[in-house]
């Protein structure tokens, strides 16, 4: 078995980046969320959040839907099936690494 730290280095960086991990984790807890909700919960600026969402959309992990409520624009974001699968897999890996790291002993 490889040392847990090697596995940590092998995690998908697109998902593991802290802001994107927060976005994907939030989205995995709901069907969809407004841009404003994500912005307030993650504490990211509008530009920063847009940039992260752009990367996630490009990778096919999130779907972004824009419409109007009256005259107010609204942006809804949801996980794609691939995004759902990837974040679940990522959390599973993180849990495994955490357990392995606790019991890990350096080899002499």
């Amino acid at each position: 078995m490889s040392a847990p730290f090697e596995r940590l280095a092998g995690l998908d960086r697109l998902v593991h980046e802290p802001a994107r991990l927060a976005i994907l984790t939030v989205l995995s807890s709901c069907r969809s969320a407004d841009f404003l909700f994500l912005q307030r919960l993650t504490g990211l600026s509008k530009g920063n959040l847009s940039s992260h969402l752009g990367k996630l959309e490009e990778a096919g992990l999130v779907a972004i839907e824009k419409d109007f409520v009256g005259k107010t624009p609204r942006t809804r974001i949801s996980l794609t099936p691939q995004g759902k699968k990837q974040i679940e897999e990522h959390w599973r890996q993180l849990d495994e690494i955490r357990i392995e790291a606790r019991s890990w002993q350096p080899q002499e």
């Binding site: 807890s29 709901c30 069907r31 969809s32 969320a33 407004d34 841009f35 404003l36 909700f37 994500l38 912005q39 307030r40 809804r76």
Partner: peptide, 9 residues
């Protein structure tokens, strides 16, 4: 002020 969240049925 906080946006909307649609829950998972």
């Amino acid at each position: 002020n906080f946006g909307k969240v649609r829950g998972i049925p």
